[in-house]
């Protein structure tokens, strides 16, 4: 590593002469060691999936959930340093609740991503802090319905509001990924952690930008991608964590929830089956390092 010994990597908020912040780059290394996390934006919802590496046989299976809910309609998953991820989520929940405090409405996913991007970025500016050792994927469903102001009473005219302009669609699925630098983009499909390269190439094959993938297909694809990206040689055991957010008339009614047991088991069964199918070529193309 070119940074070592130069001294430019010892403090956050100090650039190297060629314009790099090495502390941020080391944070990215921390992310690259984390279990794979995937997010898929589907036409009628969003899916989050996580390869939760089992670090001890003494941990209770199914406990210690890693994909967190923010407000009711947003989910966050991260790869990298676990405590950093939890702090990140805690901040996101504060932002969402602060938003509600003033605007009496749920925070739009884009606004949360923007605020969290700024928050992560601020941790690259000062020598007294270190950058977040996580890359976080934020998934949300912004309500397509006209929401009342929290607490309001009354409902306006019986015939509904006058002068609405039809034709436009409002609300819908959103997916963002925030990196340790604070950089964030909106994605059709996002992946981070150990198996991100494989996961990304699998996501690309789904042609997500066409917007044809249904939520249920998305769940199955997400599970499959986590299984495909899992490296059996390095990590023995992992648990799959799967959450989703559907439209208001879908299975989760716009809320971020765990994928129900039956569907998750079905998705895992299909994922394992697809791995058996191409078992041979998996040995051939020696996975990336």
């Amino acid at each position: 590593m070119t940074s070592i010994g130069t001294g430019y990597d010892l403090s956050n908020s100090v650039f190297s002469p060629d314009g790099r912040n090495f502390q941020v780059e080391y944070a990215v290394k921390a992310v690259e060691n984390g279990g794979t996390a995937v997010g898929i934006k589907c036409k009628d919802g969003v899916v989050l999936a996580l390869e939760k590496l089992v670090t001890s046989k003494l941990l209770k299976p199914g406990a210690n959930k890693r994909i967190a809910t923010v407000d009711r309609n947003i989910g966050i998953v991260s790869s990298g340093l676990l405590p950093d991820g939890r702090h990140f989520v805690s901040r996101a929940r504060d932002e969402a609740s602060q938003w509600r405090g003033l605007y009496k409405a749920p925070i739009p996913t884009s606004s949360l991503a923007d605020r969290m991007g700024s928050y992560a970025q601020a941790y690259t500016l000062y020598s007294s802090v270190r950058p977040f050792g996580v890359t976080a994927i934020i998934a949300g469903w912004d309500s397509e319905a006209e929401l009342p102001v929290d607490g309001q009473v009354g409902s306006g005219p019986g015939v509904g509001s006058g002068g609405k302009k039809g034709g436009s669609k409002y609300g819908g699925p959103h997916l963002y990924m925030i990196e340790p630098s604070g950089l964030y983009w909106g994605y059709y499909g996002a992946a981070t952690g150990k198996g991100r390269q494989i996961a990304k190439s699998e996501l690309e094959k789904l042609n997500l930008s066409e917007g044809n993938l249904s939520l249920e297909e998305g769940v199955k694809e997400a599970a499959r991608i986590i299984y495909v990206a899992h490296d059996d040689n390095k990590d023995k055991e992992f648990e799959l964590e799967l959450t989703w957010i559907s439209s208001l008339n879908g299975p989760t009614k716009g809320r971020h929830e765990e994928v129900p047991k039956e569907l998750k088991e079905e998705a895992e069964r299909l994922a394992k089956k697809s791995l058996e199918g191409d078992d041979d070529d998996e040995d051939e193309d020696k996975m990336e390092e």
């Binding site: 006209e146 102001v149 309001q152 306006g156 509904g160 509001s161 006058g162 002068g163 609405k164 302009k165 436009s168 409002y170």
Partner: peptide
């Protein structure tokens, strides 16, 4: 455009 006219 989304909500039309509203009175509170």
């Amino acid at each position: 455009h989304r909500h039309g006219g509203q009175v509170y």
